[in-house]
Write a protein that binds this DNA or RNA. Structure first.
Lengths: 107, 107
DNA sequence: TATACTGTTCGTATATTTGCGAACAATATA
DNA sequence: TATATTGTTCGCAAATATACGAACAGTATA
């Protein structure tokens, strides 16, 4: 089989999508997107999982570049990474508008 | 801990996102979205993985509702599920537009 | 300095994902 | 009827993901 690689765009979409691929992480993003920023505890409070697991999910979202956090001792403040959030918005919009026959999209 | 469940919307996003969470599946969707429909073999031809694995990825996309396939003996024709494609487009657009301070999005 | 508070990291168990070759099923063709 | 073509399914191995409690680290407070 010849070498058929995936494009950078495809890898980037997959990376963002993977981060969005768990309800807890979607809930975290919903929560963060609805406000300027908030503390870890506030996020933990609205989720049905332990703090260890919340911390893990936050780490993944951070690795994907969708959020960022900074220490504000003794708490940690989290917020959406606006630049990448916008990038993600565009990249997903592009993907879903690449449909040949759907007259309803891209309007 | 009280019961804090995820919303249906959050589960749906996670479901779609999970399906998009692998470059091969993104490539398949790119390929399918660019045309009316095509056969399994055409998809396999542009991917760097074996047919067994391609078949598996197609199954996942089908389970997520993003594509559909029908037998056209001895081949199998696949295409985007336009209704759910549009739903996905909307649901992702909504997610990414729920940002409080980003002036660039939702324009 | 001791204690409380806030999160992260570690270790572990379990489940899911990814990928492959081989076997299989169904139809088409020689 | 035998053989080729087209995909799917099976069985397996390796890698990742998910979740938890316990331990830990850092700062604030008594």
């Amino acid at each position: 089989m010849t070498q058929k690689n995936y494009t950078e765009q495809q890898r980037q979409i997959a990376l963002f999508a993977k981060a969005l691929g768990h309800p807890a992480r979607v809930a975290i993003l919903n929560f963060l997107a609805a406000q300027e920023s908030c503390f870890f505890g506030d996020i933990h409070e609205v989720l049905p999982i332990t703090k260890a697991t919340v911390s893990q999910h936050l780490k993944e979202l951070k690795n994907a570049g969708l959020i960022q956090g900074e220490i504000e001792a003794p708490k940690v403040r989290y917020c959406i990474n606006r630049a990448n959030w916008e990038l993600a918005r565009k990249i997903f919009a592009t993907l879903f508008c690449e449909c040949k026959t759907n007259t309803k999209c891209c309007e």
